[in-house]
């Protein structure tokens, strides 16, 4: 049942899920695997049941859309950040729909004393992923947070609604193309 190293687990998983591979860009000092969003749930299930990765550390997302849109902030972009490199134009915006979301999942196995990072790409136009809530309850609020701030829909989540931002803040603030509209508390 238990494997001694994370490489064994990888070799075993690759037989069942051929689309799993070592990620090109490693998250420093941790084994990082890139998986397809379709098989993410099944891989987590296998990891939990067969390899002892029973603890979900973190669920988050990254918006790979290009440069941050300065309209998401209430003032001009921080001059200290942008002025040092004049070639960077802060408001240049890539085409809408370009890029993708990355869902980052960190799992821990106490028996192997090992952390493992799974990276999964999600389409940016209609972002959807399978919820990990049936496997790990700790995904509950973290997925709601990702839904709130990025707008990624987790299918199978029992209570997917906004958690951090109030109802009158429209849009998903952590998306790079987020544009802040003045609401009743901005003057």
């Amino acid at each position: 049942m238990t494997h001694h190293t994370v490489e064994d687990v990888f070799a075993k998983l690759q037989k069942i899920f051929p689309d799993i591979k070592e990620s090109e860009e490693k998250i420093k000092n941790y084994p990082t695997w890139s998986v397809s969003s379709g098989s993410l749930f099944k891989i987590c299930e296998t990891l939990k049941k067969e390899s002892g990765f029973e603890y979900l550390d973190m669920v988050t997302a990254v918006d790979r859309h290009g440069k941050v849109n300065s309209a998401g902030y209430l003032t001009e972009p921080n001059p200290c950040v942008y002025s040092q490199n004049p070639s960077v134009v802060p408001s240049q915006s890539p085409a809408p729909g370009a890029g993708f979301f990355e869902i980052i999942i960190i799992l821990t196995s106490f028996s192997m004393n090992q952390k493992l990072i799974l990276v999964s790409r999600v389409d940016r136009t209609n972002p959807e992923a399978e919820s990990l809530y049936p496997l790990f309850k700790s995904a509950d609020w973290q997925e709601r947070e990702v839904f709130d701030l990025f707008g990624i829909k987790f299918t199978g989540h029992p209570n997917l609604k906004k958690i951090l931002t109030p109802d009158f803040i429209k849009g998903h603030p952590l998306r790079k193309d987020y544009v802040h509209k003045k609401d009743k508390f901005d003057y």
Binding site: G72, Y73, L74, T75, N78, T165, P166, I169, P173, Y178, H180, F185, D186, Y187
Partner: peptide, 14 residues
């Protein structure tokens, strides 16, 4: 947090 999207910039606004 002067440039944050979710902070009221001073309680004297309300």
């Amino acid at each position: 947090f002067y440039d944050s999207y979710s902070v009221v910039k001073g309680v004297d606004k309300i």
